[in-house]
Amino acid sequence: MFEARLLQGSLLKKVMEALKELLNEAAWDCSDAGIQLQAMDNSHVSLVSLNLRAEGFDKYRCDRNLSMGMNLGSMSKILKCASNEDIITIKAQDNADTVTFVFESPDQDKVSDYEMKLMNLDQEHLGIPETDYACTIRLPSSEFARICRDLSQFGESMVISCTKEGVRFSATGDIGTGNIKLAQSAKVDKEEEAVVIEMQEPVSLTFACRYLNSFTKATSLSKSVQLSMSPEVPLVVEYKIEDIGHVRYYLAPKIED
């Protein structure tokens, strides 16, 4: 028996928004520890890694590990039937071929349940080593979304360069060039509005704007976002999900021919 009850159901709705542009389907791996999902997009350029810890749920029960393959388009349709205020429960029997979503209104006067067929997915998993990155940049998530949107107008690729002075985002294309420089915040009233840079060595990498823009669909999950970079390795873009977990995106850089 698997059962996970989330008082703040809107979080699951936001998680779905953060996944569905990159992934058509994914396996939700459930264990004692919580729910994890790891999947690459079709082109194997980016990877989404979601972690929702058991402690973050109001009620969590997982008698045996199970991997539920879900069509995210279908799941998204179902979650659209939940109100933002609803409490959401995900339930499945052991070895079941369906999963049930239960939506309860806050005062319990409306309860809906939706059963969805599970899929057999044979997905590749990647082993992602713990890495000490040469640069980590924390910035407001809305600022990052704005930068990705603005620079996408100039070209397909964006260069992210980090030095101790700050971080520079640049794109070049037919109409010209755009450069956005962010300096580290000198002082801030609110932690989530800060730009904080930790740098071991300067890094400059080029990434496809299309994927970065897809990552920013997670903006509503967190006020800030962390970018981690090292020379010639994939970028990590991490959004914390309140006190329940995180969604991380990995993006392979463009490489010189």
Partner: peptide, 14 residues
């Protein structure tokens, strides 16, 4: 020129 890298060339497939 530049080409788009793929993640499976950076990380081990389990």
């Amino acid at each position: 020129g530049q080409t788009q890298g793929r993640l499976d060339t950076f990380f081990k497939v389990l």
